[in-house]
């Protein structure tokens, strides 16, 4: 049988690209930020990441093998990406069992209940993260201080929650400014927060790598960051004492992480550039709305999940332009 000629429909060559390679590139792009977070939070950073990744892979395998009774496809690498993203979204001192629950929710509910890779509506890592945030608000919001800050304390507030508390208590921005980190610190990552949120510049580095390797396109990140900047800029111009400046908005919290790594998740973002821009703008608007008027200091996770839900709708309307389709 082996020496028979093979027949298949055209095309007969393939780009040699694979989903596995794409996932591998995403992991590689997250490495600088991961290394930095270990540097900032110590061995704890590594511990959280390791547990999250291992748990995601294990749950994916077990659920596919025994619950769905299909051939496990963990080799595609998507569980690793989910694991790292989940780790990036939690504080470094999170107890191991909470991480396990997060991984189970992310993989089990966020991904496999929809049918596995490619069929999920919501970004699995964010489903896990939001589940933990709502279920374990205390553990999820007590942020360990960075090693570099040298403060003799176990936990501290993130810049965003500090700001939120302050404004709630009727203080103006200029009164609070002393307690806020400067933009340079934010850019290089000397502030508290989730693992992956710390250094904006390293996240951008990873984003550029993915852009060059064509894992992502520019549309989503630019739309998210642009709309965050413009919308918060408008608010800032209206009243700089009540609303913080746009540069601070972009550099703090998870905006950078969300815009570059989570909103660009292929499975849950729209198919066309046009759609991705609409999607990105939506994320930016919702993020700033939650930050400014909502109960939570940070809103990017919710924003991305909400926009994930409307992605199919965006896909229905933001169609590519048909060649020769003019009337």
């Amino acid at each position: 049988m082996s020496n028979l000629l093979i027949v298949s429909p055209s095309p007969h060559i393939h780009s040699e690209d694979s989903a596995q390679k794409i996932m591998f590139r995403v992991v590689l792009a997250m490495m600088p930020a991961l290394v930095w977070s270990v540097f900032v939070f110590g061995i704890d950073g590594l511990r959280v990441t390791f547990i999250a990744v291992a748990a995601c892979i294990a749950f994916e395998y077990l659920i596919q093998r025994f619950l769905m009774k299909v051939e496990p496809v963990i080799t595609d690498g998507s569980a690793i990406v989910t694991g790292i993203l989940l780790a990036f979204n939690v504080p470094s001192n999170l107890p191991w069992w909470i991480i396990l629950i997060g991984a189970l929710v992310a993989i089990g509910i966020g991904k496999l209940s929809f049918g596995g890779l490619g069929n999920n509506i919501f970004n699995p890592a964010l489903v896990g993260r939001v589940f933990l945030l709502i279920s374990f608000p205390v553990q999820m919001t007590s942020w360990p201080v960075t090693i570099q800050s040298g403060i003799d304390a176990v936990t501290s507030a993130t810049p965003l929650s500090f700001l939120k508390e302050g404004i709630k208590n009727g203080k103006s921005i200029s009164e609070l400014a002393g307690g806020l980190p400067n933009n340079i610190d934010l850019l290089f990552g000397n502030t508290g927060g989730s693992l992956g949120e710390v250094s904006a510049i390293l996240l951008i580095l990873g984003g550029l790598y993915m852009l060059v390797k064509k894992v992502i396109t520019w549309h989503t990140p630019v739309a998210v960051l642009g709309s965050v900047f413009i919308f918060s800029g408008i608010l800032w111009l209206i009243n700089p004492e009540l609303y913080i400046n746009p540069v601070f908005q972009i550099l703090t919290g998870g905006v950078m992480l969300g815009a570059i790594f989570m909103a660009t998740d292929m499975v849950t973002s729209p198919m066309t550039g046009k759609g991705q821009i609409i999607y990105g703008i939506g994320i930016g608007l919702i993020t700033i709305s939650i930050r400014t008027w909502g109960a939570y200091p940070e809103g990017i996770s919710f924003a991305i999940l909400l926009m994930n839900a409307v992605t199919p709708l965006i896909n229905t309307y933001a169609k590519p332009k048909l060649f020769g389709g003019y009337k």
Binding site: G116, L117, G118, M266, M271, L322
Partner: peptide, 21 residues
């Protein structure tokens, strides 16, 4: 090569010379 499920990367949309999906 082995076919796996669509990861909705939208590359087919971006390479289609006729603007199809």
């Amino acid at each position: 090569k082995k076919t796996i499920s669509c990861i909705r990367c939208s590359r087919c949309v971006s390479v289609c010379p006729m603007g199809l999906e």
